[in-house]
């Protein structure tokens, strides 16, 4: 009887010790326990194959501080990111929801999309660009990030949306784009001048309930998901999943979407785009011909 008690005591004693050890803050990086939900994953970027087993080491070194050991975006630095000041919280990889995609809203991004996101980083957030890592290392990281959500096991990445060739940014295209900006009510969040100060801007929250700001075109800052006209096209046609920015793919025809791209470029007043030049020239030649953008006066007034 006595021996049984001592065995039990020994068992619980060591269990307690194990538990205590588990809750001890991990100062040594090697002690971090990763809560991945899937087995090994691969990522394919062009001809480059990334492996999660190799990505794990890199993640532990470069990503865990913000994105956390379980990939939920609750790394030890995350508390210092204040969304009320415009700093987005680190991405929660367990949801399998990503802003910058070439694929339709609701679909998983391609491996290339994730690779591009890691490479370019997210301007206006604490996510830096990771060009300092080799292509192979970034590919490995993409593979490892995919181990945090079961979505990568059950769903396939979406098919990138088709983008027709860009027509020249003539004034007709810009003016039609301006009509779309009014009709699609982009101004409700982005404001009538694209300053990110529309009537709904102040109440916007991301899918986790954190405040989020609409892009201010006038700053001339990089877009969340790139710099080119193609990137801009993709942003409003796929939407930025996990944020208030919806997809307009159901309601803007692919050829019309270029018109909106051309108009949006005229809002970037601080970087003086060619589209802005064309637009200003037209406006000065046609004074008083443009209706202001924004809430239309109710009928009868």
């Amino acid at each position: 009887m006595k021996s049984i008690t001592s065995v039990v005591a020994f068992f619980f004693g060591s269990l307690g010790l194990a538990l205590a050890a588990g809750t001890t803050p991990c100062f040594a990086q090697t002690d971090i326990h990763f809560h991945t939900v899937t087995g090994p994953m691969e990522a394919h970027i062009g001809g480059l194959a990334g492996h999660s087993s190799d990505g794990k080491t890199l993640y532990r070194r470069f990503c865990v501080g913000c994105h956390g050991a379980s990939g939920d975006g609750n790394g030890e630095n995350a508390i210092w990111f204040d969304p009320t000041l415009g700093f987005a919280k680190p991405r929660d990889f367990t949801l399998g929801v990503f802003k910058c995609r070439s694929t339709p809203t609701g679909a998983l991004p391609t491996d290339e999309d994730l690779f591009d996101a890691v490479t370019r980083g997210f301007v206006t957030t604490n996510m830096p660009e990771w060009r300092s890592l080799t292509n192979q290392e970034r590919a490995n990281l993409v593979a490892f990030v995919k181990t945090f959500s079961t979505r990568w096991q059950t769903d396939k990445a979406g098919t990138p949306i088709a983008i027709p060739p860009e027509p020249p940014a003539k004034i007709e295209s810009i003016l039609h784009g301006r009509e779309l900006f009014q009709k699609m009510e982009c101004w409700k969040c982005h404001g009538s001048e694209g300053r990110g100060d529309g009537p709904s801007a102040a109440t916007l929250t991301d899918s986790k309930g954190n405040p989020i700001r609409p892009y201010d075109f006038t700053t001339g800052e990089r877009f969340k998901c790139g710099v080119s006209n193609h990137d801009l096209y993709r942003i409003f046609m796929t939407g930025l999943d996990g944020t208030p920015m919806p997809s307009f793919a159901d309601n803007i025809k692919p050829e019309e979407a270029w018109d909106l791209v051309h108009f949006l470029r005229t809002l970037q007043v601080s970087i003086k785009t060619p589209e802005l030049g064309t637009f200003r020239q037209w406006v000065s030649a046609h004074p008083g011909q443009l209706k202001p953008i924004g809430q239309e006066a109710p009928p009868g007034k």
Binding site: L95, G96, V97, T105, G106, A107, L108, R151, D155, K183, M184, E185, S207, G239, D241, G242, T243, P244, M245, P246, S247, F248, A249, D250, N251
Partner: peptide, 11 residues
């Protein structure tokens, strides 16, 4: 999967 779509009037 989470998605987010715009639906303008008459859509």
């Amino acid at each position: 999967p989470e998605w987010n779509k715009s639906q303008p009037p008459g859509a």
